[in-house]
Design a protein around this nucleic acid. Sequence first.
DNA 1: CTGATATCGATAAAAAAATATCAAAATTGG
DNA 2: CCAATTTTGATATTTTTTTATCGATATCAG
Lengths: 224, 224
Amino acid sequence: MKTGANFLEKKDVSKATLERLPLYLRFLQEESGRGTEYISSSVMAQAIAVSSVLVRKDLETVSSEAGRPRLGFKTARLIADIEKFLGYDNLSDVVLVGAGGLGKAFLGYEGFKSNGLNVVAAFDCNPQVVGKEVAGKPILHLDEFDEFVKAKKIRIGIIAVPKRAAQEILDKMVGAGIKAVWNFAPAPLYAPKGVIVKTEDLAASLAILAGKLYRLDMDEKEKV
Amino acid sequence: MKTGANFLEKKDVSKATLERLPLYLRFLQEESGRGTEYISSSVMAQAIAVSSVLVRKDLETVSSEAGRPRLGFKTARLIADIEKFLGYDNLSDVVLVGAGGLGKAFLGYEGFKSNGLNVVAAFDCNPQVVGKEVAGKPILHLDEFDEFVKAKKIRIGIIAVPKRAAQEILDKMVGAGIKAVWNFAPAPLYAPKGVIVKTEDLAASLAILAGKLYRLDMDEKEKV
DNA sequence: CTGATATCGATAAAAAAATATCAAAATTGG
DNA sequence: CCAATTTTGATATTTTTTTATCGATATCAG
């Protein structure tokens, strides 16, 4: 049986590379702030704990300019290239559904902006929170969702509602024209083709970390 | 296949597999709740959108019992096996530093518990939050951190403080004996060998999603 | 000017991960 | 009981990702 879910591999950049690019970017921005004009692949490699060859290979696909022997890459240019590749240059509006603990945290989370993202509003049904503001962002009633999203032509949504409501919200999002969804409800969701869904299972992520620790312990005990 | 006792074998499980296991687990728990007794690899594959061969390969490393032709795997047994492998069977205590928006969200986040994790307390410096409780979990002053962690022999910590304080907190954690750290500050941290650090960059994760959408758009435009 | 050297980029090799294929096993339905 | 069918598990193959190697090149020091 073939159940390929990889409809997103148009460009020939690997998923792994895609996840390293923001790390490079963050480091480069820091260095640039310190006035570094040129930066070598080995320095970048050191910073994010990978090999320098891998850095060069990653950059190969996104850099518009070759690195210069003995100097490295031009920091500013590299930043611009990565930002362009990741689409940070055109600020994207994002909506959030679910203004519970996690939802509010997102509204207040700084750092989205520097990655080209702008959370514009949250939606909820709970009358206790509807009408309030968090970090200057309004919490609106879910009834207004469709109109709002369509009017603003928003393409990205975050789901931070309880599990049981998640699929319903996803459908609502798709209906309103949203094309990419970041899901924090611990449930696999089904979306039509052409809509990207990334489910982020925080509990599982932490559990994986704990599991590594656990197995590390086991190994040590074995040795003795 | 290697020799020796099945349950003490050193597992060489790939990172990719490790990330799929929680997905299998969640699905299996759901199915088990519906009374499913046996489950086939192809059903599981369908559920999390991978190939059935891959499912079998993943299970091979963790399942204590072979699947039965024509029936599949015993659901309950599989759940127990995965939970054991991931270390969910022995509840791990976790501490959190930083009781801002994100930190509070974690205190209230349900779902950790079902993954064998128990967030026992948060720590902060801000007198406005110290002494309060969120979801029944106390927020203590950072001064008490060391004693608390050592007394309870806690091994896992979550960092939810601003970037500039992150490295300092990590060092404090290491000093108190913590061995695994989940870092939400958008900064690469340096830890001594033997301490696992996983940095979770939320803004970057969302940006990656947005970037995929962006490139999808570009591709479509290219076609026209 | 000249040579030493750090750094890149290309190519090759290795390692890791995913997929394909198929015989063997065992349940199911007659 | 027996054949048909489904599903596993092993092996082989392909694809993807990472690492290793090395000649070319441009800067820097003297």
